[in-house]
Simulated assay, not measured.
Amino acid sequence: MSESRLIELSYYDPKAETRLTAYADTIVLDHNEKGGIISAVRFGGYPENVRAMSDAIYGGATIEATQNGATHRIQSKLRGYQRVLGHDGIYATATLMATDDEQTTGDQNDAEESDDAQEGQQTLQPRKCYIFCPAGDRDRLFDELDHKTAAPLIPAFRDYVLDELEKRGSLRRLHVISQKERMDAWVLELKPEDKNVVQVLEDGLKTGQIAIPGAVPGAPDGFEQVENVTGYLNTFGVTVADRIRNQFLPLFDPASEPLSEEVLAINDCIQQRAGYSLYDAQLAVAEAVKRQLKRNGTAIIIAECGSGKSATRS
C-alpha cells in the first residue's frame, strides 16, 4: 500500500447488517503467508464509528484497508491490543497497539506417554514481544529489547546483539505505514527462558565478538573512580535509576496518555451525585485499575491511609 493518503478502514458484520468506516493515518503490519496482521493502528472518525471499529479490531475481526484504489484484507489479534480512545473536537480517535504475549505454560506428555514425564508437568511456551521506537534509534531499540528479556545485556553489546538477533530471525522489522509518525516497529520472538537471546550472548563471548567489561586484562571496566558506595552512585546512579524505571513500567502514564471515556464518565457521575471530582492521582489509579481488570480480572490498590483508595475503588 502507498503512503500518500489516509487509509480507509471498513468492517462489515453480516449478522447485524452493519458496516463501519474509519480513517487511519498509521498502520503497523506483521506480514505472514495469509497477508498482514495489525500490530498497531491509529484511526479517527465519528465517535460511535471509532468505538465500534475499535471493538471489532479488539475482537479479532478481518478489516478491509483501502488506499489509492487498492484494497487489502488485514487480520487482527483477538483481544491482543492495548486501546486508548480520545476526542478531537466532534471527532474521536483510537490507538490500538499489540500487547506482548504473557508467560504461558503448556502440558507436556503425561506419564502414560512417557515413563519419565510427570503427569501435569508444565513447560514455558515461546512468546512474542512488540517494540515501537523512533525511526533509526538503535539506542532506544536496544533499551526496549533489554526491558523485554531477562538475559543480561549491557550497552557495549548493542550492535552485535541487534544484528545477530535480526540475522537469526528472532528480531523482525514490521511494516510501518504512517502519514505523520517517523517510527520503527519490531517483533521480538523469545524462546522459553529467553534461550535464543542467551545463545546469541554465549556465541558472541565464545567468538570474541563481545566481551564482559573487566574480563580482558588491561581493558577499562568503568570502576576506576569507584572507591565507595557514594562513588558508585555518582558513577552509575542514573543508569541504575533508568533500569529500575524501565523494568517497572506503569499501566497508565498520565503524562503521556489521555484518560479513557469510561473513567471520565464515572468522574462526571461522581461530580453530579456527590458534588466533587476525583483528584488527578485518583483518576490515574482508576485508569490503571480498569486496564488491569481488563487484562487479568483482578487488581489491588496499595497506598497509605488517606490517599483516596476507597473513592477510587468505588
Rank of each mutant, 00 (worst) to 15 (best):
A135H: 04
G80V: 08
D184K: 05
K195A: 15
E166V: 09
G120M: 06
K148F: 06
Q118D: 14
C269P: 00
I63W: 08
N109C: 08
V41H: 00
R19N: 10
P213Y: 01
N228K: 09
T207Q: 12
Q225T: 09
Y23N: 00
T71N: 08
E257T: 06
T99F: 07
S314K: 07
T235V: 02
G306I: 05
E181P: 03
E8V: 10
R245K: 15
K309Y: 01
P217C: 03
D13R: 02
D194L: 05
D101Q: 04
D110H: 12
T239G: 13
V161K: 00
L9A: 12
T66L: 14
Q292I: 15
P126V: 06
L85S: 09
T99P: 08
Q199A: 15
I301T: 02
L283R: 15
N296W: 11
P192C: 09
C129V: 07
S256Y: 09
A24G: 11
D163K: 14
I38C: 01
L190N: 10
A215V: 07
T105Q: 13
L165D: 03
R158Q: 11
I154Y: 07
G214V: 03
K206H: 11
P217Q: 05
P134H: 01
G308E: 00
M183K: 15
K206V: 13
D13G: 01
V28L: 03
D107L: 14
Y276L: 08
D13F: 03
A117C: 12
G44R: 01
T95C: 09
A150G: 07
S2M: 11
T149M: 01
P134A: 03
M97S: 14
L162Q: 06
L145Y: 00
P126Q: 05
E17S: 12
D242Q: 15
L6M: 15
V198L: 12
L171N: 00
G44F: 02
P217G: 02
T123A: 14
E193V: 09
P47R: 04
V187M: 07
D253Q: 04
K167C: 08
L278G: 01
E112W: 12
L165W: 04
D143A: 11
V263F: 04
K148T: 04
W186Q: 13
P134M: 02
A22D: 02
G214K: 07
K180A: 13
G218P: 11
A61L: 07
A255S: 13
L162W: 04
A286P: 02
D100L: 07
L124M: 12
T298F: 10
Q209R: 06
Q125S: 10
A215W: 05
Q225V: 05
E304Y: 09
T312E: 05
Q125W: 05
E3M: 10
H175P: 03
Y279L: 10
V289K: 05
R79Y: 14
S114I: 09
K34V: 12
T26S: 14
V263M: 11
L188N: 00
E102I: 11
D30V: 01
N109W: 06
L85H: 09
V285F: 02
A299K: 09
D100M: 08
G36C: 06
R158F: 04
D143G: 08
Q122A: 01
L165P: 05
G218T: 10
R313W: 05
K128G: 07
A52M: 05
